[in-house]
Computed example of a mutant assay.
Amino acid sequence: MDLSPIKEALSVKSFDKIADICDNLLLQAAAEGVSFHDDWPYAIHLLGYFYVDDCDSARFLWKTIPTAIKDTKPEIVAAWRIGQKLWTRDYAGVYGAIRDYDWSLEAKDMVAAFSDLYTRKMFQLLLSAYSTITIRDLALFLGMTENDATTYVVKNGWTVDATSQMVTVKKPAVKREQKVDSSKLQHLTEYVFHLEH
């Protein structure tokens, strides 16, 4: 089976396309009756699903992987540990699963990119859900040391009270709706009326 489309996507860091490429190649292999189990990059496929936040498809893929392959390829199991943590919303556990395995050269960049993406998602979650948070909890959510997490959020305008060990979240400014000029609205109405008749 030709896995060059996967290798190409990995080389140009198109990690958001990996899951679709893998799915299409699997369908093609099934249609052609090609056996692929031993050579299939299951870990990369699982990571591709995690990258696009599709844990359901990852769970389905995990269930289809033969036990013999899971037993002989530890990177697949390591990738699945990330999925288990995502599934249970164990935010700190996701980072632990990422750090607890020495990823292959093929997977290393993808795992690092996923980790960065996940950190940005966690930051957005904190931004929308909290007004204050402890430095300890902040570090758990962002998968960083307390010092690194504090530095990360201070760069984004959050404030830290070292005495209470609390961080105050800086909410983004609310964008005000732009008022529509009534003459522009009238012009638009006339234009639409003209198109319809």
Rank of each mutant, 00 (worst) to 15 (best):
M1K: 04
P5S: 04
I6G: 02
E8I: 08
E8C: 00
L10I: 04
L10A: 02
S14M: 06
F15H: 08
F15R: 09
D16P: 00
D16T: 07
D16C: 01
D16N: 10
I18L: 13
I18S: 08
D20R: 03
D20T: 02
I21N: 05
I21L: 05
D23M: 00
L27A: 06
L27E: 14
A29V: 02
E32T: 10
E32F: 10
P41Y: 08
Y42P: 01
A43T: 05
I44R: 01
I44F: 02
H45T: 10
H45I: 04
L47D: 05
L47I: 15
G48C: 07
G48K: 12
F50M: 04
V52M: 08
V52I: 15
D54Y: 08
D56E: 12
S57L: 08
A58G: 15
L61R: 03
K63C: 03
T64L: 01
T64S: 04
I65C: 00
A68F: 02
I69L: 04
T72Q: 03
P74H: 10
P74V: 06
E75V: 08
I76Q: 01
A78F: 05
A79V: 08
G83T: 13
G83A: 12
G83F: 10
G83S: 11
K85E: 07
L86Y: 11
T88P: 00
R89S: 04
Y91G: 01
A92S: 12
V94F: 01
Y95R: 09
G96R: 12
G96H: 08
G96W: 07
I98H: 10
R99Y: 14
D100H: 12
Y101N: 12
D102C: 11
W103R: 12
S104D: 14
S104N: 12
S104Q: 13
L105Y: 08
K108F: 10
M110H: 04
A112K: 15
A113H: 07
A113Q: 07
L117C: 05
Y118I: 02
T119G: 11
M122K: 06
F123K: 02
F123C: 03
Q124C: 03
Q124A: 10
L126F: 05
L127R: 03
S128Q: 03
S128F: 01
A129V: 00
Y130M: 03
T132Y: 07
T132L: 02
I135L: 14
I135T: 15
D137L: 09
D137Y: 11
L138S: 02
A139P: 13
G143L: 04
T145Q: 11
T145I: 05
T145P: 10
E146F: 09
N147I: 05
N147V: 08
D148S: 12
A149N: 06
T150S: 13
T151Y: 08
T151L: 10
Y152I: 02
N156W: 04
N156I: 01
G157C: 08
W158G: 09
W158P: 06
D161F: 02
A162R: 11
S164D: 13
Q165F: 06
T168G: 04
V169G: 09
V169Q: 09
V169D: 06
K171Y: 03
V174H: 10
K175Q: 14
K175P: 00
R176Y: 09
R176D: 12
E177N: 13
K179L: 15
K179F: 13
S182D: 14
Q186P: 00
L188W: 14
T189G: 10
T189P: 00
T189H: 12
E190H: 11
V192W: 12
H194P: 00
L195S: 12
L195W: 14
